[in-house]
């Protein structure tokens, strides 16, 4: 396979994952704004931070308003991580790697982009927002389903999965990075309703409310939430799950290529970081722990690009 193709596949699926994650973050923000009485637009700051687009937002806007924040994340062409920009980048990469994709995957991706381009060409009215965001998630599921159902499990598949899970791990880690303080056992706020709402936010933003309840019932503690998002082996957006998947796909590449470049050491390090229990993580500092993971995820991505000759 061409190095360029591996690059295109990796980024195509990162962008697809990003579009979906951003849509989910907007949904969460919207939900909180609607359920919280008297709260201003403050929640949108942390939503922007989680999406990693807070400072770029400030560069182009005087103040923070809900409408502008949503527009920035949903459809701004100036924001390379907006839902629309991400879907456009995913489709552009798909065009580049057209020969590596099945017709089903290409058509699902192209159709998603055409749908988003038409729907997001104008500002989305607040009453239409839920439908639009739901559509983004549905479309992302369509591409994922076509991928799962029609793509051969070869090196092509390995690279697209690496893109998916690196982006997903990064997203979950950023949610924890921005919201870690809510999960800390601070004396004043424990058990207050504000915390409950904040915990909800975290679970909502990774579509994990149902899964969490199934595992832990309704008596949740912040510790349980952290455990679920970081260390759970079955939760498809937890850090351990994502990193485990990347381990698998890098392993398959070793088998098909017969060589083991440095990115494999990086993924081993990452996995080793997670061989701890949640108490240890809290004792040594949740924030520091997440920061360390985010850095290592970044390093891993760069190493994969080098090892598999993504560019010259």
């Amino acid at each position: 396979m061409l190095g360029k193709t591996a690059n295109g596949l990796f980024w195509m699926y990162r962008y697809l994952e990003r579009a979906e994650n951003t849509a989910r973050l907007i949904e969460t923000g919207q939900r909180i704004a609607l359920t919280r009485t008297g709260a201003g637009d403050g929640e949108w700051r942390s939503v922007l931070q989680t999406a990693g687009v807070s400072s770029s937002y400030d560069a182009g806007h005087g103040s923070l308003t809900k409408d502008q924040a949503i527009d920035w994340m949903l459809r701004s062409k100036d924001n390379p991580s907006s839902v629309l920009s991400s879907l456009e980048a995913a489709r552009q990469n798909a065009r580049m790697v057209r020969t590596a994709l099945t017709h089903d995957v290409w058509e699902a991706t192209n159709g998603t982009w055409m749908w988003a381009r038409d729907l997001l060409s104008r500002k989305v009215a607040e009453r239409d927002l839920p439908k639009v965001l739901h559509g983004v998630r549905e479309r992302a599921a369509l591409v994922r389903g076509a991928t799962d159902g029609t793509m051969l499990r070869n090196d092509i598949y390995d690279f697209l999965r690496l893109g998916t899970f690196l982006e997903r791990a990064d997203n979950t880690a950023r949610i924890l990075d921005v919201k870690y303080y809510v999960l800390l056992p601070s004396v004043a706020a424990v058990g207050s309703s504000i915390d409950n709402v904040q915990w909800e936010t975290i679970l909502l933003s990774v579509s994990a409310r149902g899964g969490f309840r199934m595992e832990y019932g309704s008596n949740a503690t912040p510790r349980d939430i952290a455990q679920f998002l970081i260390l759970d082996r079955r939760m498809p957006r937890s850090l351990r799950f994502c990193i485990g998947k990347m381990c698998d796909n890098l392993g398959y590449l070793v088998t098909s290529y017969g060589s083991r470049p440095p990115s494999h050491d990086r993924i081993d390090d990452l996995r080793a970081c997670l061989e701890v229990d949640i108490e240890t993580i809290f004792d040594s500092g949740l924030h520091e722990f997440i920061q360390k993971l985010l850095r290592r995820l970044g390093d891993l991505g760069r190493q994969i690009e080098i090892d598999y000759r993504f560019t010259e």
């Binding site: 396979m1 190095g3 690279f159 290529y257 000759r309």
Partner: peptide, 11 residues
């Protein structure tokens, strides 16, 4: 090496 070659993930 005197041939036109493409950059693949394996060289």
């Amino acid at each position: 090496d005197g041939r036109v070659a493409m950059r693949t993930t394996e060289g």
